[in-house]
Amino acid sequence: MNFIVNGKDYYTEKTLTIADLIKEINIDADIFIVNSFPVAASYIINDSDVITLIKKGSILDKEYLEYQLISRQGLKEYNILKNSSAVICGLGGLGSNAAVSLARAGIGRLKLIDFDIVEPSNINRQAYFLEQIGINKTDALKEIINKISPYINVEISNIYLDETNILSELSGFQIILECFDSVSSKMLLIEKCVNNMPESYIIGASGVAGYYNTDIFKQKYIGSNCIIIGDFENEAGINHGLYAPRVAAAANIQANEAIRHLLKDK
């Protein structure tokens, strides 16, 4: 019988429970996750199981840590996501929250693009911390992602995307997340990229302001390689604020679309 323990192949002729396995390999552990779900020590191991053994509150060797981080996800999926890439355009309420979710899911290569710095009016909905006020959003978000997972390759580009640079900055990524605040930048990305970048899947947002019921979020497709999420009505404006719950909900719908596309759940 073959199975995987903390990312490594394991072979035995015996029938083992998790408790037996812990004794046999002499690992201190009190959380046992098999095929993405926690089990009891009495669980009888099956052929091809993916097992992660964790000692609560401890950070084990770096070689095991990566598998512990993703033990609730599924190894097959993780290996696909680790070899995937996404570029996030605009690191505000949509982009910063989407990037954090994609990093947690283990997307191996993330590129972060924004021209601006973190300021106090961002904190109500964006992923940044007070201590990061005044620094580039790209640097601030890279720092946050590095603290979540050291296994993500993060590239940054501290520029304003316009029609002269957008195609070259975004080329070579499987996923393009349109996370701008300004409507003209949103339009530019869709107009430039949908026709010209058929190999990339573009995920945008329109209508995420306020605290309206999220059940009015819709999904609209453009061409064969673009989807837009939002209510297509509620614009940020005077007396029309942006709130963390709704904008982060839209950001995470965008991130979920990215995962669905990469894992071919469609």
Binding site: G90, G92, G93, L94, G95, C179, F180, D181, S182, V183, K186, M187, I190, A205, S206, G207, V208, A209, K220, Y221, I222, I228, G230, F232, E233, N234, E235, A236, G237, L242, V247
Partner: peptide
């Protein structure tokens, strides 16, 4: 034809 309205905010 699909006509899709974009609004700002993010």
């Amino acid at each position: 034809i699909e006509l899709i309205k974009f609004v700002g905010g993010g």
